[in-house]
Structure formats: structure tokens, C-alpha cells
């Protein structure tokens, strides 16, 4: 039997379509094996919130620093989450770090303010925005906003395109330019490291909230300069403080709705 080229191509095409279809059907069938929704639940001890937020009292932070707190918040966070310390500044990875007022609020700077805030440390971390540009641009939903207002990272799904880093106006995101493991001295076996080629950032300690614990940095601060709570709850500590004191947010004019507040009075 002689097969014409045209027929051969048609057959090949049909075979390919058939294979793809059967693969899809097979996928559906195995999906049937998966457990039903009711099998999954939220732990009873978990802290529940609708809009997690953080308030940072910068003056208390300064006091702590003078007493020699040695940046316990940063240390606690970076240890618990296996954040590597990479010596090359250009490739470094950080979830929470300290910088000056003029870098936190470049559009607010004037020489008097700079003088006032000269020695006051400002902690930077992901702002977990209401309207996060990073989530908007992610092509795979690897970064997304969860139901409690946390901007999450699904490291398994990140393709490393770094569009989110271009979109974040706060420079809160770091990329794993190389395998981070050689740069982790003390390891926390309870939490994974990351692999090369994915983006990471502060995740508001979602894994601690699930266990009913406060974020690591909040717990570690000896001065209680970091206050964490639910903005949707009127009676939460953060809501109360923000009603009473003067707080500013970084680059609020961009419409991102940051959830990290700095008390400046």
C-alpha cells in the first residue's frame, strides 16, 4: 500500500491530536482519585485575619538599636526562612532589612526631615499591598494575594521571569541568581530553602500564622516596635494605634495600598 505524503501528514496530525486528547482525559481520570475538598481544613489554632498589616514604631526601633538589639528581627526572620547571606550586594537576598529615611521616603525628603530622622532606622519589607503590581504582572499566578491579604509566593510555580521585580515599586523582591544553599550558614530544617532561578520575599510568616504564632520579626523585637494585626478588625491593636497616631506609608501615591505603616510621631 502506498501512502501519499499528504495522507501521511494527515494521519500524523490525527495521531498527535488523539494522543493529546487521551492524555487530557487520562489527566481528568486521575484527578478523580484526588481527595475531596472536605479533606482539607484550616487548623483551629491558626490566627485568622482578613487584612494582615504591620505597624512599625520607628522611635522604639531606634531605642532598641541604642540598647543593642542587634537587629534581632532581621536575624530571626532570615534564620527561620533560610535566607542566604550573599556577600555580593548586587545579588543579595533579603526579606527584611534596615535603611535610612531618605531611601524609604525619597519623595518626602527635605533637609529638616532628614535631620530629624537622621539616626532613625527604617525597616523595609514587602508591603503586602492591597493592589499589588507584582501580582498583576505575574504571568503564572506564582505570586498572588491570599484571602488574608498576604501577597504569597508559590515557589513551585515561579518561572523566574522577574517581571514582578520590575513591577514592585518598593524593591521588596529578591531573585536567586545562584543556588542559595552555600550561603546559608545556620539552617532551619523546618522550612525549605529556595532553588536558583526563583524570586522570593517576605511572606508575613504565613506558616507561623497557621500555627497560631506571630510573625518572627514581631516576636523577636525586644522593644515591641513591630505590631502585627488585622486591619479589618476594628479592635485589633494595629487598628487602634493607627486611629490614634500619625502613620505614613511608602509611596502611597502609587495607589498600591501598602499594609506596612511607619509611626513617625
Amino acid at each position: 500500500m502506498a501512502i501519499k505524503r499528504r495522507d501521511f501528514l494527515k494521519l500524523t496530525g490525527l495521531t498527535l491530536v488523539g494522543t493529546a486528547a487521551s492524555a487530557a482525559v487520562g489527566d481528568l481520570l486521575t484527578r478523580g482519585e484526588a481527595k475531596a475538598e472536605e479533606e482539607y481544613a484550616s487548623p483551629p489554632e491558626a490566627l485568622k485575619g482578613k487584612r494582615w498589616a504591620m505597624v512599625i514604631d520607628v522611635k522604639k526601633c531606634k531605642k532598641g538599636k541604642e540598647k543593642g538589639c542587634n537587629e534581632k528581627c532581621i536575624e530571626a526572620c532570615h534564620y527561620l526562612h533560610n535566607v542566604p547571606s550573599i556577600p555580593d550586594k548586587k545579588k543579595e537576598i533579603k526579606w527584611i532589612w534596615e535603611d535610612e529615611f531618605e531611601h524609604a521616603f525619597p519623595e518626602q525628603t527635605n533637609e529638616y526631615l532628614e535631620e530629624i530622622f537622621k539616626d532613625i532606622p527604617f525597616l523595609f519589607l514587602c508591603n503586602h499591598c492591597d493592589n499589588p503590581p507584582c501580582v498583576r504582572v505575574c504571568p503564572t499566578k506564582a505570586t498572588f494575594k491570599n484571602e488574608e491579604g498576604i501577597v504569597m509566593m508559590d515557589f513551585h510555580r515561579c518561572i523566574g521571569c522577574r517581571f514582578c521585580m520590575a513591577a514592585c515599586p518598593y524593591g521588596a523582591r529578591s531573585f536567586n541568581w545562584v543556588d542559595p544553599r552555600p550561603y546559608i550558614e545556620k539552617v532551619n530544617p523546618e522550612y525549605p530553602t529556595r532553588t536558583k532561578g526563583v524570586v522570593e520575599k517576605c511572606l508575613f510568616c504565613y506558616e507561623r500564622l497557621a500555627k497560631g504564632k506571630m510573625p518572627a520579626c514581631v516576636e523577636a523585637c525586644p522593644e515591641k516596635a513591630l505590631i502585627f494585626g488585622d486591619l479589618a478588625d476594628e479592635n485589633s491593636e494595629v487598628s487602634k494605634i493607627l486611629r490614634e497616631r500619625v502613620a505614613i506609608r511608602r509611596k502611597a501615591e502609587l495607589g498600591t495600598g501598602p499594609a506596612v505603616f511607619y509611626l513617625i510621631d
Binding site: S42, E148, M152
Partner: peptide, 22 residues
Amino acid sequence: YHMKLLDDWRKKAIRENKYIYT
């Protein structure tokens, strides 16, 4: 199905905030 289970675990825990498996 261990791989399927682990994958479902990740999706439920990370993406849907459900950390308990029955």
C-alpha cells in the same frame, strides 16, 4: 499517588490557606 497528594497539599496549604489534611 504520593506525588499527587504532595502536589494537592501544596496547592491547598499555599494557595488556599488550608493546612490540615484529614
